[in-house]
Design a protein around this nucleic acid. Structure first.
Lengths: 189, 189
DNA sequence: GTTTTGTTGGTCAAGAAAGGTCAGATCCCA
DNA sequence: TGGGATCTGACCTTTCTTGACCAACAAAAC
């Protein structure tokens, strides 16, 4: 393995230390310092330029740009561009492969999604689910009709399950339906 | 092999890159980039124009249009226009040979929701789910964005599960999300 | 009516071209 | 100084593209 000149990209963007002798402490801004953080910022900058359709990147190119291994890109995507944070990542392997990143426009105050993730957790009971729906209803994050449909689907889909699984499946279902409503197109087509 | 000027057809249709210097990545729409994808889109465009009876093509002609080997066309047909995705392909060899492609409307006496229930069943694999989404997309029952979100949620919610449960949970999730979109307040279908 | 020849489309497997996964090494901060 | 966050590299899977060879059908030749 040839010794790599790492962090090449960062020459411009990383935090600077003050010249030797002047001070032993970092004085410049840019606390953000890890490679992952830089890749994250770079992708976000690209996303800002991109339209609704999102952004398409080549894993290898990006890795070359930052002089890191390709799997580093996966790490960044997994930790920073997951759906809890409001992103969707799709990819395809093989010739013409790509990674597409879409930022879901928060049609509601950001934070509501991660709040939902937290509130639901790994498993949730019917009562808690109901309480959560009521709460979302009260705050107008949810329409009456959607709440009705969700309620009925939750019941229908979990009634046959053993309690142990029911809670988990219910959590999955509730989470998915809510996220879909919050992020989906709102009107088909 | 003479160096081929590939993607001739695509001159007009392919995605634009941002001006040099701005970014090395595609930021505009229409990302789809492989030859197969272009052939797929071309055929679908033809299908949209064609009536109920479907579309008839010459394998060789199409291959010439895209400057590829004829078997590439078979690949596209096999992977994108199979019966799982709701297409029927028949062909005849010899002089006057042809390939006919027919797109089947997903129909059920009781309507699209019943069709969905039936198509999903108790358990469904990721591939089947994908095919179903594509089919609904092709027929405009679903928006791109919703499909994107559903796909990503399906993957996320089932990735940790043992295959035996994953199929069932996936079925529940897919069914619920689709029914919610169709019956919820978002659109009146 | 056969046989031959030309015209189409079909199959399959090899190789190329992406991206994915995962365990272990490292880094870094409380 | 221990644990979580990062990084790396070896190895894997998926998807696409190509070309050699095969099979079916039609029209011409016999």
């Amino acid at each position: 393995m040839n010794p790599r000149r790492r962090f090449c990209y960062n020459k411009a963007g990383r935090s600077k230390k003050v010249k030797d002798g002047q001070s032993r402490f970092q004085v410049e801004v840019a606390f953000i310092s890890s490679l992952s953080d830089h890749i994250e910022r770079y992708i976000k900058a690209l996303l800002d330029q991109a339209g609704q359709g999102g952004l398409e990147i080549r894993r290898t190119e990006l890795a070359e740009l930052f002089e890191c291994v390709p799997s580093q890109i996966n790490y960044v995507l997994k930790t920073r561009f997951n759906s809890e944070r409001g992103y969707i990542v799709e990819s395809r392997r093989g010739g013409g492969g790509y990674i597409r990143i879409v930022r879901l426009e928060p049609r509601h105050p950001q934070g509501i999604c991660s709040w939902i993730y937290q509130a639901i957790g790994d498993s949730i009971g019917m009562d808690e689910a109901e309480a959560l729906l009521v709460r979302l209803l009260d705050h107008d994050y949810l329409s009456r009709q959607d709440a009705l449909v969700i309620r009925s689907l939750l019941a229908e889909e979990t009634e046959q399950l053993k309690p142990a699984y029911a809670g988990r499946v219910r959590a999955s279902l509730l989470r998915s339906m809510l996220i879909l409503l919050l992020h989906g197109s709102g009107n088909g087509r």
